[in-house]
Design a protein around this nucleic acid. Structure first.
Lengths: 111, 111
DNA sequence: ACTGTATATTGCAATATTACGATGAATAGG
DNA sequence: CCTATTCATCGTAATATTGCAATATACAGT
């Protein structure tokens, strides 16, 4: 039916999936990489960087903002976006919490 | 138009996004967690674990397999799935490569 | 060969995502 | 006040995802 049954899963599972969804588009990865690289906050000259329409980029920025991955400050007529440091750390921990659970696998154990 | 313009982005950006997409559903997170927890390979009693139809779970397993995150071995009549150790390491590195780029942010720098 | 079990595939309906143009709201600079 | 710039939102079209029932395939045991 095209609707995800969130109620069947744990809070952590839904949160991880939701964050992964925010990462699940190359344009959003590109935006994050641009923000990570420039370190300082960036306004919407992403429109020149990526070859997407302004409205499309605005939509991607909103999704990243909804996920809490980035913040936006009004700076005159333009908008200054940047990584949300607190959330970034939490996200990293969440993902590594999953990644690191795979540690003690002997070759013969499985696969 | 609903189609992602992959040609506009780098290989790394598309790869990260594609992997994130594989993670972007709580059922798939749950499957991975189950595999991580049981360590040993697992067949499809995920159907009992998750409350989803067998065909739905098979579909999620296929997506995880397509992403290279898991492997499946035939074991008699049933199927034995498990984490793909090699890919798992690569994925972890890819994500941490992104996460770790955010290091030197001074509070006044931005945000 | 027949039956039951386990898994994959197909076809469909409901919903979500992606992208863009057009429009709106706010600010900066005359 | 007028205009250009910057960004957000709305409406819409194209495509993707999610989920299930029904069906197909493959093996195991009798």
């Amino acid at each position: 039916m095209g609707i995800t049954k969130t109620n069947l899963f744990t809070k952590e599972q839904n949160e991880l999936a939701s964050l992964a969804k925010a990462f699940a588009h190359p344009a959003r990865i590109a935006i994050l990489q641009y923000l990570l690289e420039s370190n300082k906050c960036i306004n919407g000259d992403l429109v020149n960087e990526l070859k997407l329409a302004q409205s499309t980029i605005s939509q991607h920025l909103r999704e990243l903002k909804n996920a809490g991955l980035i913040q936006g400050n009004i700076e005159g007529a333009s908008m200054s976006y940047c990584i949300n440091p607190k959330k970034w750390g939490i996200v990293q921990e969440l993902f590594n919490g999953m990644f690191d659970r795979f540690a003690n696998c002997e070759p013969g154990d499985c696969c």
